[in-house]
Design a protein around this nucleic acid. Sequence first.
DNA 1: AATGAATGAGCATTCATTCAT
DNA 2: TATGAATGAATGCTCATTCAT
Lengths: 218, 218, 218, 218
Amino acid sequence: MSDIEPWLTELLRLNDEEEKMTDKQIKIVQAAVEIFSEKGFAGSSTSEIAQKAGVAEGTIFRHYKTKKELLLSIVTPMMTKLIAPFAVKDFTKVLEADYPTVEQFLRAITVNRLEFARKHFPIIKIFMHEIPFHNELREQFKETVAVLVLEKAYKAIRHFQKQGQLIELPEPTAMRLIVSTIMGFLITRFLLVPDSEWDEEKEIDYTIKFILYGLSPR
Amino acid sequence: MSDIEPWLTELLRLNDEEEKMTDKQIKIVQAAVEIFSEKGFAGSSTSEIAQKAGVAEGTIFRHYKTKKELLLSIVTPMMTKLIAPFAVKDFTKVLEADYPTVEQFLRAITVNRLEFARKHFPIIKIFMHEIPFHNELREQFKETVAVLVLEKAYKAIRHFQKQGQLIELPEPTAMRLIVSTIMGFLITRFLLVPDSEWDEEKEIDYTIKFILYGLSPR
Amino acid sequence: MSDIEPWLTELLRLNDEEEKMTDKQIKIVQAAVEIFSEKGFAGSSTSEIAQKAGVAEGTIFRHYKTKKELLLSIVTPMMTKLIAPFAVKDFTKVLEADYPTVEQFLRAITVNRLEFARKHFPIIKIFMHEIPFHNELREQFKETVAVLVLEKAYKAIRHFQKQGQLIELPEPTAMRLIVSTIMGFLITRFLLVPDSEWDEEKEIDYTIKFILYGLSPR
Amino acid sequence: MSDIEPWLTELLRLNDEEEKMTDKQIKIVQAAVEIFSEKGFAGSSTSEIAQKAGVAEGTIFRHYKTKKELLLSIVTPMMTKLIAPFAVKDFTKVLEADYPTVEQFLRAITVNRLEFARKHFPIIKIFMHEIPFHNELREQFKETVAVLVLEKAYKAIRHFQKQGQLIELPEPTAMRLIVSTIMGFLITRFLLVPDSEWDEEKEIDYTIKFILYGLSPR
DNA sequence: AATGAATGAGCATTCATTCAT
DNA sequence: TATGAATGAATGCTCATTCAT
């Protein structure tokens, strides 16, 4: 915890543009992420966060009106980052120029999201645990992220289907199968076997191939 | 919620063999499942459970020493049921006799677990949310369920690999790809699109085919 | 505080008809009245009340959902008692039968309210301090007490005016002058010179005579 | 509330003689009066005052060591103003010269205090609510105001009694009856019917006449 | 077996006040 | 003079749990 976490630098950069975070505020966020991800939001107490952050309990509430606001201030910016790879105006052009084959596209996406998950893992964990319990989170996710990402992803699927690189499945089904496989990969990597030896290159390869064989015409 | 839930009859049958549950106890479990699955364990209060169950606060603690014991009494029996399909002594014989092809086997497993999930959905939800926060749960799951299921599953994979029906992948990798796909199917079905129209037969078919193509030799 | 206060027996009797108050609850109300009247509602803390009542802080909130509910449970019943002398169906008949002269009527009212104030003094003090800050209190007072009392009082004034015992003033003005004088008498008695020697009989006499001379035709 | 309040100009003038109040300080006092009179001292928070005044929280404490000091700085000068009409050396001479009859004297006092109350209403309200809870206030009031005013008032009463304009009552009793009536007049005017139509001239007249008839020999 | 009053530790949040800038 | 971040004690209230009935 003494090193600066990758998700933190990110968060700092995001907030930098609006307002400077004080030293103590940074410590608070750091402690909150750690504790929320370890015990869940409802299971964490602000006094514990304050203690770990080395600040008075009142200090938390000077910066965040409520405990929930602290949660959202951590989780919301992550959602924005999630859509980053899809936040491109002319998506089809990118596909044509950079990813002539599905394989290249899938590999790019997988590696990219693997790095994203590696960087933001604790926050993603918090997010996935809390999303069923907080309407704001769910709405935010649905309205911004899900919509934007889905639209672009369906476009990519149709693009490769038209080229005959993917079999003709309903886009949602194809999407589901691809996402399941990649999510399963990430979950295995970060939750189930976080420290064991694991040949990442090879596992990526297996995973991509699996999707490819599963979805390409014979 | 007034009808008797499928998971409840199951739970009653399990406990029946040991001890009779009183009327009030049943009401408590019913209320607890509902509330835990809606707000999470830490976010639920025993007083709310008592209220919904229509019993006095003290009554809960007459049957369960602690709130956590109530949680475990709900979640643990579900784990036992989870391994049921694999709780067979001579697994290879079953495979040979009943499931000559991977497709038949996969289809059987998928349909079977789909029904299981349909029946036990609220409890599974509770289980998946709480497992990261309770060592007992994690231990219980690893030591009994995971081990037993994994062992049998690897055996099945090796069985079909030997027959040339599956390509040669490390069993954990094959397992991961299969489980990811099926879990993705179940999560989509029960969490993401619970009420929308969804052609289940067709989706099962797509899913099985995807795994099959992804893992069988060309 | 060790003796049973007059307002307490009253309060107990009122609640008795609905629900029994537990021993601890009585202690809580007793302590609350004492502390509220000494420091004001906002200046009193529930922990202090609990301590003085000799109960755990949580016990207060088992009986009263909020601190404010505790306040209202103390003050509201007093208002009902306030209208008691006017809660008579055929008020004019009472006047004719029992109080042939204004003097008799004024003396009866004054003595009666003096005793009322003596009994309920701490609660009245609380009531008068809190009424500007709590809309519920103000509404309750206006809608029930003020209306009922005013109506009957105006009737009495008109009654004695018709008989030529009172000069012709607008009823509200006559009412104001009478009430001011009696209230001033009570405030002086209980707030300003609570313990000094004070010849009550004589002061009542002066007060009644003052009103009488001030309002009767020469 | 945006206009300059009458009590404020008064307060400024008083403080002017000692020390200049800064712009922010004026805003603070303005906000404090408004909030104290609306929610009571204990129910108001310094942060709310700071916010309404448009200053930083710390600024309040630069000018007033404590919240209570802020209260006193508002209420104390008002007391000085209260005794103004009596702060005359040769009171009897004033009576003889300016007020040959009780009626003239009463009318002068009533009109004068009516204007005073109109100007200082919010502060008077604060004062009356807080006096039971703050010993300093009570002491200050008793030792300076009450004593000075009482002394002069008794003198006036004796003066008119000697002339046969007032009946022979103990001065405190006469005082009580007069003050009750005038206070009742003011309270009715400013608290009970603040915005309704109300013929002030006529009500003053009724009030004076009531006292006069009540206290003068027949 | 069931109750519900009682507990006291713990909770999120607010408070008046301090102090480095 | 003014700021506003920081404090930590205190607040009203909730919690899981106990226990006499």
